[in-house]
């Protein structure tokens, strides 16, 4: 890793030769079948992955560099299969993640109901300063929806985490979810004491698109 000092931050080169200022590890978590892998593929490749994708080693990851006001944040996004086999997921799992994207499927009530358990586990086990975001995926499937947006918003508000609805299929809010994470991480890392405080909650509220009711 070549390190050069530019504007006070060490700029590194990844294996593929891209420059970045700092790297962050983001983990996708949530029940099986909520669309974690699809979301990852949509973000990285801008494509929708249809059919099932099976990782041969039970884990997958993608790198993507996001530009946050001139700072290049390398997001290393990890997606592991099979968390659902654990009755509870212990802290070793999240130990070193900087951000957690917590997904549920708006057409699967059960996946939403499990969010509370996920949130309490995160509170118990993750790093104190971990960035958490709640994503209601598959919001394009309007007719099959069984989790109301208001419910999810309330749950998110109660837990003081931002919420947005995403569609790995249409791409709605997918980039925003990752950019918001990058922005929050970058602010945490580089903000000077006198700088205005960045609220990822406000940022997400301003930027997110609400899925249209008819599609």
């Amino acid at each position: 890793m070549a390190g050069t000092n530019i504007n006070g931050v060490v700029r590194s080169t990844s294996v593929t030769g891209e420059f970045y200022d700092f790297a962050c590890k983001v983990m996708l978590i949530g029940d099986s079948g909520v669309g974690k892998t699809c979301l990852l593929v949509r973000f990285k490749d801008g494509a929708f992955l249809s059919g099932s994708f099976i990782s041969t080693v039970g884990i997958d990851f993608r790198n993507k560099i996001v530009d946050v006001e001139g700072t290049k944040v390398k997001l290393q996004i990890w997606d592991t299969a099979g968390q659902e086999r654990f009755r509870s997921v212990t802290h070793a799992y999240y130990r070193d993640a900087h951000a957690l994207l917590l997904l549920f499927d708006v057409t699967n009530r059960h996946s939403f109901e499990n969010i509370r358990a996920w949130v309490s586990e995160i509170h118990e086990y993750a790093k104190d300063d971990v960035v958490v975001m709640l994503l209601g995926n598959k919001c394009d499937m309007t007719s099959e929806r069984c989790v109301k947006r208001e419910e999810a918003e309330k749950l998110a508000k109660d837990n003081k985490i931002p919420y947005m609805e995403t569609s790995a299929k249409s791409g709605l809010n997918v980039d925003l979810a990752f950019v918001a994470v990058a922005k929050d991480l970058q602010m945490k890392k580089t903000r000077r004491p006198n700088d205005p405080k960045f609220s990822v909650l406000e940022y997400v509220d301003q930027q997110k698109q609400v899925p249209s009711k008819c599609c």
Partner: peptide
Amino acid sequence: HLIDYTCAPMP
């Protein structure tokens, strides 16, 4: 092709 998985944040 999996060598970069050694960066994984989990055990």
